[in-house]
Simulated scan of single mutants.
Amino acid sequence: MKPIIQTLFLFILSFMMAFPNLAYAMEEDEAISLHSEAAILIDAATGAVLFDKESDRLMYPASITKIVTGILAIEDGNLDDIVTVSEKARNIDGTRVYLLEGEQVPLLKLVQGLLINSGNDAATAIAEHMDGSEAQFAERMNRFVRETIGVKNTTFQNPHGLFDENHQTTAYDMAKITQYAMKNSLFRSIVGTKEMEWIGEGWETTLYNHNKLLWRYEGTTGVKNGFVNESGNTLVASVQRGESEWIAVTLKADSAESAYSDMETLFDYGFAQFETRQVSLPPALLEAYQDRFVIPQQLTFTSRKDENFVIQINESSGQLVVSSLDGTTLYSEELETREGAHVQSMKPIKSPDNSEGTSMEKKATSFKLSASTTFVLTILITFAFLIIRKRMKRKNAL
């Protein structure tokens, strides 16, 4: 019985050696427990997905809808325009900045009330000013997210996020929308504003940003929260530390505190496990390729913390590839081929030290084995060991 147990132990050990990342991935999933029904964490610079929980599931967004309304007003509108508030805007349900019918307000101020205080009245006033009605503005929103940003599973019916059964999005789509919006410096400034004096005809107060993560999590740069009964608590947030900025989306948490707690869990995980790498490639380093391809001066990609990597150029296809030492592709780009270029084979590129002083000239194996090949070889070695051990016992017995 003892040899069988030993054999089983060695078999299990061989399996773990062949697939070292399997147990690690299981531990990661178990380590992240969220209250929200759907969530995603991405790198704001590269769009790489760092964590995913049902991010393609159709959900109700509530007021995170205003991210789209805000960026459209900034990019498509004239922020110096004076907007006249309608009766409909004055009487809209939900959170407001208490605009009065007939009140005239600069478009920029409405965007601030929209994104900082989640004013539904500001959202309706913006939509009516830009397109005449909420319905017409919703058509603009849908064209924008599909054609400009490229997301496919979002349909908006209004500019504020009040419940409509056909007003739906996904965590993934909202992450991509926010990634786009946060590249606009004015949008970024507004959603990162903690407080603002508001002087209107019907309300004079200090607006405090509804996104409480700005106060409770170091490095938070934005962006928006939401709630209606049907959507539960929704939240989109961005956090920057050093060279890395993450964007996270959580949908349908049972309380605001659960949504904030989930955000903190996601960001803690992201900063503990990943980093955004910016690697400069001096022209002198790539002299062998300059006559064939247009080489970028800097690469930006997402990797595991302190992960070693190698850069290669496939001269037959013109593809630049950054991969980890286990063969995982971290970044790829089709290079522009210079006229009359001569093509050869794929060669590893030595590279300079990155910003953290970690040299990319790290030693890598000259060949790679697939997981299945490694597994088979390990099993063969294990059984060879057992056979040798058995023969040695017989020899000793003689």
Results as ranks from 00 to 15, higher is better:
K109M: 08
G192L: 06
R391G: 13
L285K: 05
N158I: 01
G200K: 08
N233W: 06
M141D: 00
G270M: 01
T170F: 10
V105C: 10
V105R: 11
L266M: 03
L286Q: 09
L79P: 02
V239K: 07
D43I: 04
D81S: 04
L34K: 02
L72P: 03
G70S: 13
T148L: 00
F309T: 05
T329C: 04
E336D: 07
K252T: 04
D131Q: 13
Y60W: 12
H167C: 08
E243S: 15
P296D: 12
Q344G: 14
T155F: 14
I4H: 06
F375L: 11
A397F: 02
F156G: 01
T155C: 13
I40F: 00
D306A: 03
S370G: 10
D56I: 02
G113T: 07
T300A: 09
A31Q: 10
L162T: 03
Y60I: 02
A288N: 15
I381L: 05
N158E: 09
N91T: 15
Q136W: 04
A364Q: 08
S55C: 04
K393V: 11
N153S: 09
A259Q: 08
Q104T: 10
Y269E: 07
W246S: 08
N229A: 15
R140M: 15
G94Y: 12
I92W: 04
L72G: 00
E230W: 01
R394A: 15
G232P: 00
E103W: 14
R389Q: 07
E139K: 15
Y289H: 15
Y269F: 14
A122E: 05
G357E: 01
T178C: 11
E339A: 15
H210S: 14
N184I: 02
S303H: 03
F293K: 08
L386K: 10
T302M: 09
G113P: 00
F309A: 04
V228N: 07
T276K: 04
S332E: 15
S351N: 13
Q112K: 12
S324Q: 10
I40G: 06
G318D: 05
H160Q: 07
P352S: 14
K368M: 03
T374C: 05
L115C: 02
L320Q: 01
N120K: 11
A397W: 13
G119E: 08
L115E: 09
M196T: 06
H35I: 05
L79T: 13
A256N: 12
I12Q: 04
W215C: 12
A397R: 15
S258T: 11
Y180Q: 12
L115K: 06
S255T: 12
F19N: 09
M360R: 05
D81C: 12
V105P: 07
K368Y: 05
I67V: 01
A397P: 12
L320D: 02
